[in-house]
Design a protein around this nucleic acid. Structure first.
Length: 546
RNA sequence: GGCCUUGUGGUCAAGAGGUUAAGACGGCGCCCUCUCACGGCGCAAUCCCGGGUUCGAGUCCCGGCAAGGUCACCA
């Protein structure tokens, strides 16, 4: 077999350069010792999964913390999945969450191109070299033939795949190959695997620790019939020439690690370090499964934007899942920027965590409670502009009024900050009743109409907008007393049957009448914000409704 | 089914032969002179199972079991 001739026949590519050219073109990066070069290599499907953020954050932290480089490579080798504008989605959604690349697709850099489709020449050069060395060969098997083989293997409980005796095209003669090519039969290029599945090695994974890997014996496809490489081949070449030092990727890749090891080996490249991280899961009835793009809205990064989760909160939550000691650090250093946390690969969990929206909500509340009224105003307005209803956008017309509401709802100025807000959407919904078109009270009192009417009327008569909190509460008490309600909570608790109710019940009636809700922050302040006219009007409306 | 990985409260988890088995979220209860929220205090709840090794095992070994991943011209 004349391999040189075969290589020329299969990959006639004229502009393929000698291999040394590529080594010279993409030299070692010459970074400081310990600096890691990491990457995110998504497929441009137009959908950003929360898992993308998760793994991006890990890679980004490690690169930047070590003084290295974090880049974006687009794995667009699958024509069918490609979506227009997907790169823009990737870039913008990660940027929103504060993950920034140093180089890569749409940004440039010395190690590009960063789109795999634009790197065909490099892949061809190396595939051609493998053919020349007898380490790769063309395969003309059709889909049907491959399936027949697979069925035969499964029926006979044999290891499925294209290997050994099942690799029909492995032993094609030069004449047969030539005839097939001349006949125009489509072909792929396969690796002529030298591995033995019986041989096992221990491999050190940066997150999983010591693991056992078997040698690869599959004659995997390296170039598809359209001349585009498969993931495996592109991975080896790209991560070598982009000088990646550490590959952190999802654990679904663990089982193809043997292929990658053999590929790097046969190509003469140094293997990067690998860390396979677990995917975020969800409990669905009885089953635990990966967060699904189709079934779970929270799987999509856009979900968090639509709901108005603060990016810092989402990032913080990701970090708590990513590094087990992060949460403790955060508790001790609530004011410190997240970037100062010492991220370590070794602290990454070995088993997949369940996504916990309740925990995210708690983190969000805690974070939002650190914002000032102005910051909250800006955050809410920004969200409303993109995702809010027309009415919600209108909330920002009177900034002063909004600021007062936020100050109240966030407990600013009080001894303790409140934590009522989870995300922008929920926040605007909870304060909606402050605005004319958001106030739709459904009065639900615990007392009979006559009593309620009496109390409401008594309060309306006594109410003076100028009263301070003390004086105001004194009047609430007076109204309570006049109607036989307990004003001394201790006395009331000692014998609740002695009274129709207590001051707290009176306060509740007033609260429901003015806000439509039984739970709100301080009522006196609410009446101050609403203003005298609105307060009186709401009281009258409530009385009239009885 | 083969192979790989992983099994500590409901969830995230600390733990690397000797601990009353941390902490956080959630739940429950009490307290905080109007509700709620915040905060404080407290309670309940965990080492997958079975064998070994050892004076002693969540931790080491073996065997089960369970869950997840993977077996494409998808990444």
């Amino acid at each position: 077999m004349n391999y040189e001739k075969l290589a020329q026949l299969l990959i006639p590519d004229a502009d393929v350069k000698p291999l040394e050219y590529y080594e010279a073109q993409y030299p070692e990066r010459g970074l400081e010792k310990g600096a890691e070069v990491t990457r995110l290599a998504p497929s441009p499907t137009g959908f950003m999964h929360i898992g993308n953020l998760y793994v991006a954050l890990a890679n980004e932290r490690i690169a930047h913390q070590s003084g290295g480089v974090f880049y974006l490579r687009i794995e667009d080798t699958d024509e069918k999945r490609k979506v227009e504008g997907a790169v823009e989605v990737i870039l913008s959604s990660l940027k929103y969450f504060g993950v920034e690349f140093d180089e890569g697709a749409d940004m440039g850099g010395a190690y590009g191109p960063y789109y795999q489709r634009q790197r065909a020449e490099i892949y061809h050069a190396f595939a051609k070299d493998l053919i020349r060395r007898g380490l790769a060969y063309p395969c003309f098997c059709t889909e049907e033939e491959l399936e027949a083989t697979r069925n035969h293997q499964t029926e006979n409980k044999l290891l499925p795949g294209y290997y050994g005796e099942f690799a029909h095209c492995r032993s094609l003669t030069e004449e047969e190959i030539e005839a097939n090519v001349k006949a125009g039969k489509p072909y792929v290029i396969r690796l002529r695997s030298q591995g033995d599945v019986e041989k096992k090695h221990t491999f050190r994974d940066a997150v999983k620790g010591e693991i056992t890997v078997t040698e690869n014996n599959q004659d995997v496809v390296i170039l598809k019939s359209d001349g585009i490489p498969t993931y495996h081949f592109a991975h080896a070449i790209d991560d070598h020439f982009m000088r990646t030092t550490l590959v952190i990727r999802g654990e679904e890749w663990l089982s193809s690690l043997p292929i990658h090891i053999e590929l790097f080996n046969v190509l003469g490249f140094k293997l990067p370090r690998y860390g396979h991280n677990c995917s975020i899961q969800k409990i669905d009835g009885e089953v635990r499964r990966k967060l699904s793009k189709r079934k779970d809205p929270e799987a999509s990064l856009t979900f968090y934007r639509e709901q108005g989760y603060h990016k810092q909160a989402v990032k913080t939550y990701m970090l708590t899942l990513l590094n087990s000691n992060f949460e403790e650090w955060l508790l001790k250093n609530p004011e410190t920027p997240l970037e100062e946390f010492k991220y370590s690969i070794g602290k990454m969990g070995k088993s997949g965590a369940l996504f916990d929206i309740v925990k995210l909500n708690d983190i969000s509340k805690t974070y939002l409670a650190t914002l000032s009224a102005e910051e909250m105003y800006d955050f809410l307005q920004e969200w409303a502009n993109d995702y809010g209803t027309e009415a919600q956008k209108g909330y920002f017309a009177d900034k002063d009024y909004m600021l007062k509401i936020l100050t109240l709802y966030m407990g600013i100025g009080g001894k303790k900050r409140r934590k009522d807000f989870i995300c922008a959407k929920q926040a605007l919904e909870t304060i909606a009743w402050f605005f004319a078109d958001g106030f739709h009270p459904e009065y639900a009192y615990k007392f009979d109409n006559a009593t309620v009417k009496q109390i409401l009327s008594d309060f309306a008569a006594a109410y003076d907008f100028a009263d301070d909190n003390q004086a105001w509460f004194g009047k609430v008490k007076a109204v309570a007393e006049k109607n036989g309600f307990a004003t001394d909570m201790k006395a009331y608790k000692a014998d609740p049957t002695a009274f129709p109710g207590s001051v707290s019940d009176v306060a509740e009636l007033l609260r429901i009448a003015t806000t439509g809700l039984s739970n709100t922050p301080d009522l006196w302040t609410i009446m101050q914000i609403l203003g005298e006219a609105e307060t009186r009007a709401r009281l009258q409306t409530a009385i009239a409704a009885l």
